[in-house]
């Protein structure tokens, strides 16, 4: 699994799948993602019937339950437009795991066609829209946390980084063990809270040690985990979704 080899030309319309975590906890990140796409001249459609990609049930072994939810999402995006997702994790589910989820069912072909239309947001901005960003913000030091699914399933760590590197006043700071999981893992954090806690503690320590002013990630699961722990520790370091960060630094206050 990795970045795809060929990308479509810039489309007139895209669908946006916001993800359930963004919907409830980080809606500004979803909005920012849609605004970035719209600013590039793409019409963005947010179907109101979308809910969740089904990954929590899939990763817990409840496949019938996951399939039912996945079918609901597939019905939300009937046209052949690309589906842009502001999460490596949910994009990975829809792009790489839907085919397995529907293996041996009558919907398998539909799932294959659907998964082929799924793009992670930074991948879509860089590879399809070839976006150029002008930084309007003050100088800032940023630590980037790439989620494991963005890095390994979607192969978009480079896209995250390249977008941030376009911002001239943003200094990306290096961190120790940057490729190591933050310990969220969805239901893992609930089933094995002590192991998850040990992982997020070490991740936070590495991030704080960078001296960064801000933490940026493309996945809200990691953000919820890491920033929740940073707050608990009363650290100054705060986090935001990469879409929010990019949007805030590149749009004039009155636009």
């Amino acid at each position: 699994m990795s970045l795809r080899k060929t990308y479509p030309k810039k489309p007139e319309q895209v669908y946006f799948f916001g993800t359930c975590l963004v919907d409830m906890l980080y809606p500004e990140a979803g909005l920012a993602g849609m605004q970035l796409l719209r600013r590039e001249g793409v019409n963005v459609i947010y179907p109101q019937n979308q809910t969740c990609c089904g990954q929590p049930a899939w990763n817990s072994g409840y496949r019938d339950e996951a399939r039912r939810v996945a079918l609901t999402q597939m019905a939300c995006f009937p046209q052949a437009y690309p589906i842009v997702v502001p999460s490596g994790s949910c994009a990975g589910m829809m792009r790489h795991h839907y085919p397995a989820l529907f293996h041996g069912t009558p919907q398998h072909d539909a799932a294959l066609a659907f998964s082929d239309r799924v793009f992670e947001l930074t991948e879509f901005l860089s590879r399809v829209l070839k976006i150029t960003l002008s930084d309007l913000g003050e100088p800032v030091k940023v630590a980037l946390h790439v989620s494991c699914s963005a890095r390994r399933e979607m192969g978009v760590a480079g896209e995250h980084q390249a977008l941030l590197e376009q911002l001239k006043n943003v200094e990306l700071v290096a961190q120790g063990r940057s490729e190591e999981c933050c310990g969220f893992g969805g239901t893992f954090a609930v089933k094995h809270p002590e192991i998850s806690a040990a992982m997020v503690e070490e991740k936070a320590t590495e991030l704080v040690a960078t001296g960064a002013d801000s933490l940026v990630s493309g996945d809200c699961g990691c953000l919820m985990n890491i920033t929740g722990h940073l707050e608990h520790r009363n650290e100054k370091l705060r986090g935001s979704h990469i879409a929010s960060f990019l949007w805030e630094r590149t749009h004039a206050a009155d636009s």
């Binding site: 916001g18 919907d23 500004e28 909005l31 849609m34 459609i45 947010y46 609930v190 503690e201 608990h232």
Partner: peptide, 28 residues
């Protein structure tokens, strides 16, 4: 166990579903 080492996640005042509708992202 989540909040033993983390602050609780805070729900947003408005969901993305609502914001998308308000900003005109919900139709073709």
């Amino acid at each position: 166990a989540w909040t033993r080492v983390r602050s609780a996640p805070r729900l947003a005042a408005k969901s993305l579903h609502t914001l998308a509708r308000e900003k005109g992202f919900d139709h073709e």
